[in-house]
Amino acid sequence: MATEAKAHELIVSVSPHVRGKETVGRIMWTVNLSLLPAFIAAVYYFGPRAAYVTGLCILTAVLSEHIYQVSLKKKTTIGDGSAFLTGLLLGLNLPASVPFYIPIIGAVIAIVITKLLFGGLGYNIFNPALIGRAFLLISFPKLMTIWTEPTARFVALDAKTTATPLGILKEGGLSQLMQVFGDKTELYMSLLTGNRAGSLGETSVIALLIGAAILLYRGYITWHIPVSFLATVGVLAWVFGGQSGFFTGDPVIHLISGGLILGAFFMATDYVTCPTIRKGQVIFGIGCGIITMLIRLKGGFPEGVMFAILLMNCFAPLIDRGVKSKLFGAVKEQKK
């Protein structure tokens, strides 16, 4: 009898003895994959330089994580796809024209300073890619705001520079935006397809929504943050965004321009840096929306999504403390 057990070397471990199929790697690589349409759109509109800039970000992010961990004699975690994702997101948040050292500096800041020095995946307070971009924008304001016109061809060598739609809106108002794009339908079409100046991966709303649909379908993100974020921006744009008084703004322009779609679906939803309770995520989304519109309408920058998410990242732990999920049996207890 005893020999039988011995022959089998039974493993003793704590329950549960079966586990679901999800892993951190599976989630991260799926998110990477869901950004593929946006990446393809970036290459389509901004040419091979888009691939070069993004690739450099990814390579630097993965390499710096590996080197950091190996040199500290830790287990390398580049296989979980999160460093790759940080690099990819940073790349998609950069203009096409940046010189080679910009992606490298940004990726090192994102991975080493923002993520690894805080303890690695799970411990970082801020979205690494966004800190990388914020650092670059503040340190290299000129280089980070040279926007090349999309060429819709695979040559982008002599691309002309222009302003982003939000930039035009900020400087010259809606009338000037109309001048540049023709009529409203053409403006909307350009914004939806991505045929406009901007960061590499933010321009094509359609491509981004395809990716977002994958994440929603797989349950890797839920509606709470994107919907509350977008709804807040839409309402505020409608109420305060017009030039002829309250309730005259065009919410659609604000919703589908700038980095809002990329930010709301792929960056504000970063697990580590957003609240964990769904109710808290709605507060987080609304906060992101308010700060975004405050910056867009009143601030010095034409775009505010990045700073909005980073500022709300600070509040995520606080929101998690304040908002709790409903305890089973809690209501009855209070009634007693």
């Binding site: 471990s13 704590v14 079966v18 586990r19 999800e22 799970g122 580590v272 769904r278 999920s325 089973f328």
Partner: peptide
């Protein structure tokens, strides 16, 4: 499934979504 190796919580919230007692 080995439970010897695990990583830090990535705060995905899956556990909160399934806890029958509404815990965190």
């Amino acid at each position: 499934v080995s439970s010897d190796e695990y990583s830090a919580c990535i705060r995905c919230g899956s556990c909160i979504d399934v806890c029958p007692m509404g815990l965190n």
